[in-house]
Computed example of a mutant assay.
Amino acid sequence: MIFSVMQLTGGIILSLGFIPQIVQIFKTRSVKDLSLKSYLLMLFGISLMEVYAVSLVVEGTGLAFLMTNTLSFMMVSIVILLILRFRSR
């Protein structure tokens, strides 16, 4: 139980760490200093972990991991979409 709480807390903190970047992009409408390749690699790694998290949930464990990993996947996806939207400006 304690490890699930730790996973959930840590995962939420890591996922919410992308919010300042997203806010900064909207404020400045600039992504010139961001690396699309880096965020794509993060998305690929998170995608692999997502498959693993789903397999854990199917086995009856890992729901906290799946939830926080999905949140991270969404946050990184938002950053990538913003990079693609604002990079040509």
Rank of each mutant, 00 (worst) to 15 (best):
T70A: 10
V58E: 04
Y39P: 02
Q24A: 14
F73S: 13
I22E: 07
K32V: 09
S72V: 04
D33W: 03
M67R: 08
A53L: 02
S47C: 06
I25W: 04
A64H: 01
V58Y: 13
F26R: 04
D33G: 09
G60Y: 00
V54S: 03
T9V: 09
G10Q: 09
I12S: 02
F65M: 12
S4Q: 14
L66H: 08
M75C: 09
R29L: 13
Q21Y: 05
S77E: 07
L81M: 14
M1L: 08
M49E: 10
S72A: 13
R85C: 02
A53I: 05
L71H: 11
T68N: 03
F73K: 15
L8F: 07
V79R: 01
V57C: 09
I2K: 10
T70N: 09
Q21F: 04
V57S: 04
L48W: 01
F18W: 06
R89Y: 12
F86W: 11
L71N: 07
S47R: 01
L41D: 06
S30T: 07
T61G: 06
G17Y: 05
I2T: 15
S72W: 01
V58D: 05
Y39S: 01
L36Y: 14
S47Y: 05
L34I: 06
S88K: 14
S55L: 14
L82A: 08
E59L: 15
V57Q: 00
K37R: 15
L8K: 08
I19Y: 03
G17R: 01
R29F: 11
G60D: 02
L41P: 03
F44W: 05
F3P: 00
K32R: 15
L71R: 04
Q7T: 11
M74Y: 03
Q24E: 09
M6W: 06
I25S: 00
V57F: 10
I25V: 08
T28R: 13
N69R: 09
G10W: 00
Y39W: 07
D33Q: 12
Y39N: 11
K37C: 08
L16W: 14
L81A: 11
D33S: 15
S30V: 02
S38C: 08
L82K: 02
T61R: 11
S88G: 07
S4R: 13
T61H: 14
V57G: 00
F26I: 08
T70M: 09
S35M: 06
L63Q: 10
S47E: 10
L82V: 08
S30C: 13
M42P: 00
V79M: 01
V5Y: 11
V5H: 14
V23H: 13
Q7S: 12
S55Y: 11
P20C: 04
Y52Q: 14
M6N: 14
T28C: 03
Q7F: 02
K27A: 11
I2Q: 12
V51C: 14
I83M: 10
K37V: 07
S15R: 05
L84E: 13
